[in-house]
Write a protein that binds this DNA or RNA. Structure first.
Lengths: 235, 235
DNA sequence: GCGCGCCAACTTGCATGCAAGATGGCATGA
DNA sequence: TCATGCCATCTTGCATGCAAGTTGGCGCGC
């Protein structure tokens, strides 16, 4: 199951997805897997033709994608797939540090049984990461890591935080796929995750925030130089 | 000058605003000043008529407003103006605490002359608040306070943070107008703002974050009970 | 050979037409 | 009197037409 236009998916539980939803999902997926490479300029007409619909739903989906920061709609010139510059990664990490830090703090401040439920979930993902690491299974490691961070934010039960993180995750998906192959310090993450979990278990809000922040800041400080050294200017 | 669809305003410096932009701005303004009250259900046709355009630009503006969380587009039933529940205010405050806290920390970590520029700006706004307070000028106080918090986030030079805060500010504008009249502790804000400024001046990142967080948490803890006591269920 | 301007092709902005889904009221039956 | 079902009306989803803005290339003048 895919991410989809949360704006509807979670609000109006179910209804037949409209063509706009289809176009939105298809385009987003195409951007995620680089069928639409950054910098590529597509015409709405062409996309509409490929998706078997008229320009209208494609245009409306493009507006939503622009709002998500994934494309730019250039008046009378088409849809431009956005590229991410190193500076965007800096911005993204700062937002993540802020939101995940607060989320961890909030979780640790919740009643004991709720804390434990979240902590157990986080522990499952972290164990999966540990296992994947010993087996050198990058793909599984990445998925478990993603689940961990999603569960962390969802644990704070704040729809706006979830939405913010979802948007930013979508934006940085390609960069993440790229850096995943480069990282050589995956073991450190497991340990840092466990520290976060411990703080949540004992209800140490300040510690939870601090360890969540430290984890992301450390990751940022390993990855950004890596990107720099590869001279990556946009991804 | 009004807020406008930042998605374009800051990216493509200038171009004749399209009808969609007009519709977006007009509807947003109508929601801000409660011409469109929460819970009101409008038809696109009717809005289009009032704005002197066809349904198409109104519909596209509605999509953007829905993405901003200000309205819901109900399929084949019209546009519903969203109301804010107390729980939404809780969510909003948590996001603000996270983002402004990190922003203050980032500013305090910048080079001295940049810190000072931001601090001076913040000090001007705080002085204006102080003056407005002694003169019991609520409107001026509110505007200066708004400028202070905007400057705080803009000082961190992170477009995504600015955008997040802008979205949330738009959502909570009506609630802010309502609570402004109820508050009896405006003096405390001035003092707390000064504490933030001092930390920024001396480059105390941890202190800046902590005082920014404390400021917002204190405000939340005074306001939410106030809303509760008035039995406000949506605004 | 080189620069400049014009034009044809292309692209979207916006209006409108049509069909299908949603709604509220009225008539009908118990 | 009340519940139920049908239909007229309203509203949007989506396709398409037209006009205006943008672009790239070709030809003309130098």
């Amino acid at each position: 199951m895919m991410v989809r236009g949360r704006a509807d998916a979670d609000r109006d539980s179910e209804r037949r997805p409209s063509l706009v939803d289809d176009a939105y999902a298809a385009m987003k997926q195409a951007i995620r897997d680089s069928s639409f490479a950054p910098g590529y300029q597509a015409s709405e007409q062409e996309i509409a033709l490929r998706l078997g619909m008229s320009r209208t739903p494609v245009h409306e989906a493009a507006i939503r994608l622009q709002e998500d920061g994934l494309v730019r709609v250039l008046p009378r010139r088409g849809i431009l797939i956005c590229a991410l510059a190193p500076d965007d990664m800096r911005e993204i990490y700062d937002v993540i540090v802020a939101i995940e830090g607060r989320a961890a703090e909030l979780i640790a401040a919740r009643p004991e049984h709720q804390r434990r439920a979240v902590a157990d979930d986080l522990a499952v993902q972290t164990d999966a990461m540990d296992a994947a690491w010993t087996e050198q299974d990058l793909r599984s490691w990445g998925e478990a890591d993603e689940h961990f961070h999603r569960a962390l934010v969802e644990g704070a039960a704040n729809g706006r935080m979830i939405r913010i993180i979802q948007t930013i995750t979508d934006q940085s998906h390609r960069a993440r796929m790229f850096t995943l192959k480069l990282r050589r310090e995956l073991g450190a993450s497991v340990e840092e995750h466990r520290r976060i979990i411990d703080c949540i278990r004992v209800g140490d809000a300040a510690g939870a925030m601090e360890s969540a922040r430290t984890h992301r800041l450390r990751a940022r400080d390993t990855l950004l130089p890596l990107l720099d050294s590869f001279g990556v200017k946009h991804l």
